[in-house]
Amino acid sequence: MTGTLELCRRGVSAARENLAAVTWRYVASFFSALPLALAFGAIVDGYFASSLEAERFAEGVDLQLWAELLFDRGDALAVFAPLVLGASIFWIAVSTFLTGGVLATVHADVPLRTNELFAAGGRGFGRLMRLFPLGAGFTAVVVGVVAGGLTFLHNEGTEDWVSEKGVVATRLVCLAVIALVAAWANAAYDLMKVEAVTRGEHRARYAFVRGVAAAARSPLRVLAVYLPFVFAALIVTLLVSLIDVRIARTNGVWVFVAFALQQGVAYFRAFTSVALAGAEVRLTARAR
């Protein structure tokens, strides 16, 4: 336990020492999301800007106004599907590039400058992209099999149950198991990336095997390092969202306050992802 806590602490320290990496990760997510947000904002603006209902639409969720928007602008929103696909591909590329830089940064004994961060990202980009189909495929297969299997078993097993509480309880247990398996598979993929970047493993299949092997050797330890960061991001997101939904955007100041709060959470999540990378790099180093 002490070792795990120490790993987490050192991960956090790595993120604090490399705020440039954190910031670039945040900035990348911001600008990758911006086109979609602007497109949606333009649709909303076109529909409501001239209407006296604009304020009401801004200040809360009005189901009828949302129904009108979706009903009348459904065609425009349908354009989002290819836009989201394109933006996702772009984000995968940007994220992969930054992951290489972040892993190199948190692996270094001293903080890297921005140009060094980008240089490291460039060096690891090819390896990580080759690893992508293996790692993402592994995660998808493991999570898909477990989630699909458990969902099937749950539906079949509870079909004749009368107790709704029992069904909800077992559903939550299944979800927890699926989440744990997803966390483990994702941590395994992270370890593959660490192998590829910090150990300089060019060959994707070897990085893949070593990552899976490392995660399989000590799954609990891997989860113990992975989950605190995910929980931190999740809990902060949920808690802030409780505040967010209670902020009535009655004027521009409140719109800005809510925006700042949301972006603060986004920055915090970028921080936790860099801290997690730091902890996983040290986990791999210790295992060796």
């Binding site: 997510s29 904002g41 603006d45 639409f57 809510a258 925006f259 949301q262 959470v265 992802s273």
Partner: peptide, 22 residues
């Protein structure tokens, strides 16, 4: 015109997509 609705939901859309990306 009032652009508050667009600002509010555009910002929220930005945050939700950022969340998805992250």
């Amino acid at each position: 015109k009032s652009h508050r609705a667009a600002a509010t939901w555009g910002a929220t859309a930005l945050y939700l997509v950022q969340t998805l990306w992250q």
